[in-house]
Design a protein around this nucleic acid. Sequence first.
RNA 1: GGCCCGGUGGCAGAGUGGUUAUGCAGGGGCCUGCAAAGCCUCGUACGUCGGUUCGAUUCCGGCCCGGGCCUCCA
Length: 466
Amino acid sequence: MSIQLYNTLSRRKDPLAPRDPKNVRMYVCGPTVYDFAHVGNARPVVVFDVLYRLLRHEFGEDHVTYVRNITDVEDKIIAAAKERDEPIDGLTARTTQAYHEDMAAIGTMEPTHEPRATDHIPQMIAMTERLIERGHAYAAEGHVLFSVPSMPEYGRLSRLNRQELIDGARVDVAPYKRDPADFVLWKPSTPEQPGWDSPWGRGRPGWHIECSAMSAEILGEHFDIHGGGQDLIFPHHENELAQSVCAQMTAPDSGQPFANIWMHNGYVVANGEKMSKSLGNFFTVRQLLEEGVRGEVIRLALLSAHYRQPLDITREKLVEMKAQLDRFYIALGHVADVPLSDVALPEDMLAALSDDLNTPEALAVLHELASDLNKAAAPAEKARLKGALLGAGQLLGLLQADPEVWFKGTAAGGLDEAEIESRIAARIAARKAKDFAEADRIRDELVAERIILEDRPDGTTDWRRK
RNA sequence: GGCCCGGUGGCAGAGUGGUUAUGCAGGGGCCUGCAAAGCCUCGUACGUCGGUUCGAUUCCGGCCCGGGCCUCCA
């Protein structure tokens, strides 16, 4: 099935035509590790995780290379370390680990490669030197700047022209810039700031060069998909594109694109405004997890809207997502004893995801499968639908938990299983004795403990935590 | 100021030039000792004003409203 993806560069859906179907290559901008990931940061991770799963299904598990970097040198890191009086290494290591834990909790697979900026300083220096040699960059007062006027195509991705950038500038132009639109590739470090020796003195890279250097190193100078949040379109991706194209070793100036398709997910919003650290209107994945919101609930919420649309994560939405997952797991729990049949993924599921990752449509398919499963009577039909639901869920990174664990897993402060089972036994005895008042009393007690009972036709009683 | 997105039923959220999105919540029914779960069923939505069309929520234009970007940001 042909995969169509909305390309920020062309502003339309373009068919994905990998340069090498045996090695489909995707680069997604990862975190700058100075603080916990908020829900907005988690969105691209989940979105591109679904794309990664789709690509692996389409081209084969061994034929997709997914790179997501860790930016561990950046001025915000320096500032955060200073503010907390914590060594930079400790801060970045701790934050990276928390990031890994949080992203695993929301069901994301690990990328094929996760390069760190600080491991690629020589490559960044080499790329910067090449840009100077080619007249696309110049050194000034310990800085190296990319010369925007040297690249006529600059601004194509963000659809901003140089004059507009200058007119709309919100910051003062540094005096060493030849052109107000020029941006930093390398900047000097004071003795207390992290720095590396370079032809321009001890310093550190600018914000954009690490992705150019690392993508070229791992994926090569031309690859298939480059992704990130919409807020990276400008300046980060525009500048990255400029550097990468101008520094290409193979076929320089050939007009060959750096990445064929640029994808950008929409913002997570709060009360209609973009969630961001600078506005302070964010909550972290970790906070939600600690409040008892399950990772899968957060994941479903992030997939509940199309990835390019704004997404408001509210308490109400999280409650609804939990209810939706309960519906799936109840359906799966009812066929727990049905052997899993190995079936092809539903075509309409693949069609939905192949159409620019239409996850709401894919979720509708999932719900239809659950309804069909609930209605199925024949064992073969149950097995087929169970397999289809689990397979389709796997493509979205959902429904992979054991229903028993989903419903009966430990609840902090809740009744333990033995206690619940003993009360259920007492209730069954009361029902057998037609003492329904007692049976209902026990059930009401359990409901107060957030335990829901479900009497089965065979006389047994199943339960789940609400 | 320039450039982008959006405005769909109570809520969330896809989509389409004419025919059911889907889910949550709600009403009715079946099932059940009663529930739960499930099944059946109901509500008749597309900001606004024009235009194109046999027919527009869907295409075009104006307007109103909301959000974003214009070198911190996923």
